[in-house]
């Protein structure tokens, strides 16, 4: 299965894939000798690919000698891991209590209306994925959301169209 990853793509894509694979292999090397290596390795895969591609999980399964059903069980248990690719920009609306009390639900609803996607959905053009997230711990800025690395705080639903225009 691994071979397919490096075949059938253009030269640059191939180089990109190799580079990504190398990172995964390095992570596997780093953690394989320790107990409980699976979750740290999955973090690396999620980090490099933005989700957990099945083919990469097959490599992990072989390397760590773990059955795929177990890996799938772990991957589907933790919300941080995703088994499907996500949009270019992930909008994470904080649904912690402080944000909720200050109107995070209305904010989330507004995004959903503007983007025409449900929560956890990705827009057709693959530009945005809308997520409700656990407390980001920026309660002072409530209600707060992140898009990529950027934090937007002290928002009202009317800010939504303008925020989306930035991307």
């Amino acid at each position: 299965m691994e071979e397919q990853l490096t075949s059938g793509c253009g030269a640059t894509a191939e180089a990109d894939i190799d580079e990504k694979l190398e990172k995964i292999e390095a992570a596997i090397e780093q953690f394989r000798s320790i107990k409980g290596a699976l979750i740290p390795v999955l973090h690396e895969v999620q980090d490099v690919y933005g989700y957990l591609p099945e083919k990469i999980l097959q490599i992990v399964s072989r390397a760590l000698n773990l059955p795929m059903s177990e890996i799938y069980g772990v991957a589907s248990f933790y919300h941080f891991f995703s088994l499907t690719p996500k949009g270019d920009n992930i909008i994470r609306v904080c649904m912690g209590t402080a944000c909720y009390i200050k109107g995070a639900q209305a904010l989330l609803d507004r995004f959903s209306t503007e983007l025409k996607v449900p929560v956890q959905g990705t827009t057709e053009d693959n530009k945005f994925t809308l997520e409700a997230t656990r407390c980001l711990g920026a309660c002072g800025l409530a209600p707060v959301l992140t898009i990529g690395e950027k934090v937007h705080g002290r928002l009202v639903p009317n800010n939504v169209p303008k925020i989306l225009k930035e991307y």
Binding site: P40, L42, F81, R134
Partner: peptide, 10 residues
């Protein structure tokens, strides 16, 4: 000490 990252499970 080693660090282990949680993965989003309360």
């Amino acid at each position: 000490i080693d660090v282990r990252l949680g993965a989003g499970a309360f």
